[in-house]
Simulated scan of single mutants.
Amino acid sequence: MKKSIFFTLVILTTFLMGSSFAIGKIGLGYSSPLLLAGIRFLLAGFIMAIIVKVLKRTHPSGMKNWGRAAIIGTLQTAGVMGCIFLSLRTITASESSILTFMNPLLVIILGTVFMGNRYRWYQWIGVVLGFIGVGITLGGINDFRIGIAFGAASAVFWAISTLLVNRWGEHFDTWVLSAYQMLFGGGILIFLSLLLEEPFFHINKHSLFILLWLSIMSSIVQFAVWYFLLQKGEPGKTSSYLFLAPFFGVLTGSVLLNEPISSSLIAGGIFILIGIYLVNNNYKKEVVDNTGYLLNKTK
């Protein structure tokens, strides 16, 4: 693949990742948060389920693997995305994206503590720098808002689901797992919406455009491009470009929502971006999990 095409696709997929925060926040003007997230992933999962059925991709065998897909959907879609949309009610899209994308840092910590994984020294430096960046970012927030807790929780859910997919991924076709975990997670979000909030969705051309963008462009297209890049490029180098996603989250929050970019947000964001780059970079043996994150191990 030509480098120009490769980098164009990298920019596209990381832009779709990062911009979904600002677009999702705009969507909250037309819908309650859990309902918007639920409809988004039910629609995306339904479309992908049709695609994998038509393509005759291998589906999970046995109730055990279907249960694993449901667990991943509960964590990755319901947990991560539910927390993101709830966080956007009280904090900016920039802050939410930075908190959420600290998940690669948590993968290193949780993977070491609970799964016995071992990582390279530069990855641990990345973890330290990343958390320094989070501290700087939060230090610039004058008052505590519940959205900060939801943003941090989304990173925790994402890190746990990353480790589970890394452990269970060999039992699944990647595309099939993604389709059904979105369906499972979307259904849970709809249920939680009915249980925990007063659900509403104002149907008009703006709300439908936002919903379709989040479901198709920020879910299906973003996913397809990302896995295409992982297959065509060197996985470790490709994964290192994930640091661009929170950058686009901050940028689109400023452009689309006129969110202020404070000096603490810039300084903290730089530390976090460097940390994510170091965590995802690889110089030794690599293991790539089914969410696209690189887990480096040494024997």
Rank of each mutant, 00 (worst) to 15 (best):
F6C: 08
T8L: 09
T13P: 14
F15W: 09
L16I: 07
F21D: 05
F21A: 04
F21T: 06
A22K: 01
G29E: 15
Y30E: 10
Y30I: 00
P33I: 09
L35Y: 01
L36C: 05
L42F: 09
L43V: 12
M48E: 08
R57H: 13
T58C: 06
T58W: 07
P60Q: 00
P60V: 03
G62E: 05
W66R: 10
W66Y: 10
A69L: 12
G73N: 04
Q76D: 13
C83E: 01
F85G: 12
S87K: 03
L88C: 10
R89K: 15
R89Y: 02
I91P: 04
I91F: 04
S94V: 14
E95H: 11
E95F: 13
S96M: 10
S97E: 12
I98A: 02
L99M: 13
N103S: 12
M115L: 14
G116W: 05
N117M: 11
R118S: 11
Y119Q: 14
R120I: 02
G126N: 09
V128D: 05
T137Y: 11
L138G: 06
G139F: 06
I141K: 08
I141R: 08
F144G: 08
F150K: 13
S154E: 06
W158M: 06
S161G: 12
L164T: 09
H171F: 07
V176L: 00
S178K: 08
A179V: 07
M182G: 00
G185I: 15
G185M: 14
I188V: 13
L192W: 03
S193Y: 04
S193L: 01
P199C: 03
P199L: 01
K205A: 11
H206N: 11
L208E: 06
M217F: 15
S218G: 09
S219G: 06
I220C: 06
I220Q: 12
F228L: 02
L230Q: 14
L230A: 07
G233W: 05
G236W: 10
S240A: 14
L242A: 13
L244C: 07
S254G: 10
S254V: 10
S254P: 01
N258M: 12
A267H: 00
G269M: 10
I272T: 02
L273V: 01
L273N: 04
I276W: 06
V279Q: 12
N280M: 13
Y283G: 14
K284A: 14
K284H: 15
V287Q: 12
V288Y: 14
D289W: 07
L294A: 11
N296D: 11
